[in-house]
Amino acid sequence: MYVVECKGLRKRYGKGKLAIENLNIQLESGRIIGLLGPNGCGKTTFMKILTGLLVPTEGDIFVCGQPRSEATNNFISYLPERTYIGGRKKISAMLDYFEEFYPDFDKVKAYKMLESLNLDPDSHISSLSKGNREKVQLILVMARNAQIYLLDEPIAGVDPAAREFILRTIVSNLNPGATVLISTHLIQDVEPVLDEFIFVNYGGNIIGRGTASELMEAEGKTVDQKFREVFRYA
């Protein structure tokens, strides 16, 4: 059984062009997959459809064998590129909130991660810097024992040291058997942790898929080098 399966997925925004033309994709369990492609190729749209933030124009989506619905959000832990936490709430209140709505949320794990990042659970979210808010959001997402982690640009906009920490946090807190789908432009940084890469072109068309070791063996190139070759601007 695939953790994610999409058949004939199409997404059109209003009367504009198709963000996703005809996506057919299957994702296996227990893999860390890099969803790589140029800006506007439909990576974020795909993730949003999986979480229910966007309504697809056409197509079938199955998550852990079930047709996508609000119930399948129980299997998915999603880190959007935007910061959705804010206001006067304390970090601990956000942890309580997640614990209440997600049965797989591990509060002990979350507190440990906060401690390792020197974040005080009693701090008000409004008093945190943007970077620290992003870290709290990452902790909320990774403290879940989910089947699928969708991480949209998890290391964009942070310094190289923080990138390393974030990637280590992702890998070390992963639920065994879970699938991670990472969308990013910083391929060099994520390459060491990837089991698999998927190259997506405009319209959500998959134009390449494989593992880093296969690519190195066949062409002697890293994923980053291959990406630059495939998506080279004229």
Partner: peptide, 14 residues
């Protein structure tokens, strides 16, 4: 707003 990213990804129907 951006809070919708939290609201609509909860396992609760719209």
């Amino acid at each position: 707003t951006d809070e919708g990213y939290l609201t609509f990804t909860l396992p609760v129907s719209r």
